[in-house]
Design a binder for these strands. Structure first.
Lengths: 222, 222
DNA sequence: GCAAAAGTGTTCCAGATACACCCATGT
DNA sequence: ACATGGGTGTATCTGGAACACTTTTGC
C-alpha cells in the first residue's frame, strides 16, 4: 500500500509539551521512543497526522495513545520545519502545549510504564530531534503568558490554597514574590472564588481553599 | 515522476500576509490565482514547500516569485490544517506575516500586473481557502503587538514624522490617540531618533523627521 | 490674517511595589 | 511555649489618561 504524489510531500507530525508542577519543579511529560530514529531516546509525545484529522485532534490522540493523558486544553505553540530536524526524512512538526494539574497525572497503565515519565525542566535527559528547542520555546511562552493571563490556574487541582498558587508562579518565573501583593493581585481574578472550606490541617493555621469558576479557559487579565 | 510514501502525507504550503499602510488604510497584498482550485479568486501569496527548503525560506521565495516583494522580515503566525480547508486534497499551511513601508511596494514588473494588488482590510474581495481567517488572525496579532513592541516602525519609510507614525497606530487600532501622550510614549523608544531635518513644507509648519536606529528588529518596550 | 498641522506640560488616577506583624494550629 | 505557615493594610512610586494653547508655515 503506497501513497503517490506528483511532488514531494513532507511528513507532518504533531508534538505536545505537557507541563505540570510537582514538588518544587516544573516538569514536562516525555516518552521513550520505541522506533527509529532515536530509538530509546526520550522525546515529546506526538506522531504522524492522519489523512482526515485536524491538527489539534492529532495532538490529542497521540498524547492519549502514548501517555493516557486526556482532556487537556491544547494550544498551538509553533511549527518546526528545519529540513534536517529528522535525520531520515523531511518532517514538519506542529507543536502544541498544555498545562495539567499534578493530580491529573495518572499515566496510562496500558502503555509501557517505563516508557512515560515526568522530567524536571532543569534536568532534562538528552532528547530526540529538536525537542529541546520545542520545550525551550514552550517554557518561554508559558512564562510570558503568566504576566497577562490566568493560565497558571490550569496547573491547580480543583481546590487549592493561595500559597500553593503563589508557589506555582514562583516556580515558573524562578523568583520569589511578595505574599501580600500576590494575593491582592490574584483575588482580582474574576475567575477564582473561595469555597468556604479549609485545607487539611498541618502543624499550622489551616488555609482557605479556592476554586476556579470557569475551568479550562485562558482568561486575560483586565 | 511520482513520490511514494507508506502513509498518506498532506501537502505543506506557506502563505504570507503582507501588510502595508497606504493613505488611510491598512492593506494586505493579494494575488489572483492562476490555477485550480479557486482559479481567478484572490488569495494570499504562498505555495508548496520544496523538499529541502526551510519553512521561512519557502514563504520568502513564494512571496518574491508571486509579487516581487523581497527583504521583508517574516514572522510565523500560525499553522492552519483543517482537513477540508482545500477542497481537493489535504493541505497544511504555515502562515507568516510581515509589515512593509509603503515606499517598498514596488510590485514585480515581471509577474502579471493584473495578478497582484493591495486591498484594504475593510474591503477584501472574496478569498480562496481559509485565507480570510488567516488575515483576521494576522490583524489581531498585529494589533496586540502594537501594545508591547515597536513593530509599527516597520511600516515607516526611512524618515518619517511623528504625526505619520501616530496615524499608522490609529489606522491599525481603529481609534484616535491623544497627540501629546502618543509623542511622550514613542520618544521613549530607544530605537528612534530625530535626524535634525524637517519634512518638505506643506501649507503649515514643517515637521521634524525621525528615523529608526536598528531597522528590521522587533523591539520590546521596557 | 487665516487656515492647517506641529509642537509642548501638568494634573490626576490606578495599579504595582515595598514593607512587618498577628493568627490558628500541631507538637 | 514555640514552631510553622496563614493571613492582613498602608505609604509610595510610576505609568497612563485627560486635557488646550502657542508656533510656524503657505496662501
Amino acid at each position: 500500500m503506497a501513497y503517490s504524489y506528483q511532488h514531494p510531500h513532507p511528513a507532518v507530525t504533531t508534538d505536545v509539551v505537557i507541563f505540570t508542577i510537582q514538588g518544587d519543579r516544573l516538569e514536562v511529560l516525555l516518552v521513550r521512543r520505541g522506533t527509529e530514529p532515536y530509538r530509546g531516546s526520550w522525546a515529546l509525545p506526538g506522531g504522524f497526522l492522519d489523512s482526515d484529522e485536524d491538527l489539534k485532534a492529532c495532538a490529542k490522540r497521540e498524547l492519549e495513545e502514548e501517555t493516557g493523558v486526556t482532556g487537556v486544553y491544547l494550544e498551538q505553540l509553533y511549527t518546526f520545519g528545519a529540513p534536517d530536524r529528522d535525520p531520515r526524512k523531511r518532517v514538519i512538526s506542529v507543536a502544541y502545549y498544555a498545562l495539567v494539574p499534578p493530580d491529573r497525572l495518572q499515566l496510562r497503565a496500558a502503555s509501557d510504564a517505563e516508557a512515560v515519565a515526568w522530567y524536571s525542566l532543569d534536568a532534562l535527559p538528552p532528547l530526540a530531534f529538536d525537542h529541546k528547542d520545542i520545550i525551550a520555546m514552550a517554557h518561554k511562552r508559558l512564562s510570558s503568558k503568566l504576566d497577562y493571563s490566568t493560565i497558571a490556574l490550569q496547573f491547580m487541582p480543583e481546590k487549592f490554597t493561595l500559597s500553593a498558587l503563589q508557589k506555582v508562579y514562583e516556580i515558573i518565573l524562578g523568583e520569589r514574590l511578595d505574599k501580600r501583593n500576590f494575593r491582592k493581585r490574584v483575588i482580582t481574578f474574576a475567575c477564582i472564588q473561595h469555597t468556604g472550606e479549609l485545607a487539611q490541617y498541618g502543624k499550622h493555621r489551616p488555609a482557605r481553599l479556592y476554586t476556579v469558576i470557569s475551568p479550562g479557559t485562558v482568561e486575560f487579565i483586565k
